[in-house]
């Protein structure tokens, strides 16, 4: 019997963007409210898993042509880069800097290099989770 999951695919197309937006919100809210890179990364990989459930491996790798092992490397590079960047300013390793910046559209914004460290955590979590799931999923 040939199955047809058009309801799942249509619902996925709507729900996916809500999940991705929520994960971005949780990632950026991590400084002042609960959240951060780890939960945001897990939620993003949850969105990709939903895409994998509704479609198949080939389609998803065509939509998102990302090598997740390279993503882990880039994430680790971000984290160690923000740590090592402190050494250029003659302060201990992993010393973070912050400040208020006047941005053209957003106005007075408080920027912190811990966000870049968190971005590294985010990329590593997404990469590790998707590597595990793809490796388990693609054996025949």
């Amino acid at each position: 019997m040939k199955t047809n999951d058009i309801i799942l695919q249509t619902a996925t197309k709507v729900v996916l963007f809500i999940i991705v937006l929520f994960s971005v919100h949780i990632f950026f809210a991590g400084h002042y409210t609960p959240g951060g890179g780890f939960v945001g990364g897990l939620l993003t990989s949850g969105a990709i898993v939903l895409l994998l459930l509704a479609f198949d491996m080939k389609t998803v790798s065509k939509i998102l042509p990302v090598n997740y092992i390279h993503m882990i490397a880039v994430g680790l590079l971000f984290s160690i880069g923000t740590g090592a960047g402190a050494l250029l300013f003659n302060v201990p390793f992993l010393t973070h800097a912050f400040g208020h910046v006047e941005l053209p559209v957003l106005g007075d914004t408080s920027l912190h290099t811990a966000t870049l460290f968190d971005l590294g955590v985010f990329l590593v979590v997404v990469g590790v989770t998707m590597t595990i799931i793809q490796t388990i999923g693609e054996d025949e």
Binding site: T3, L8, V15, G46, V49, L50, L52, L53, A54, F55, D56, M57, K58, T59, I133, G137, E138, E140
Partner: peptide
């Protein structure tokens, strides 16, 4: 939602993530 969809797909098709449709 994701957990229920994964479980239902396993019950329906026997695999959770298909390689090619």
């Amino acid at each position: 939602f994701i957990g229920t969809v994964a479980f239902s797909k396993y019950l329906e098709k026997g695999v959770i993530i298909e390689n090619e449709r």
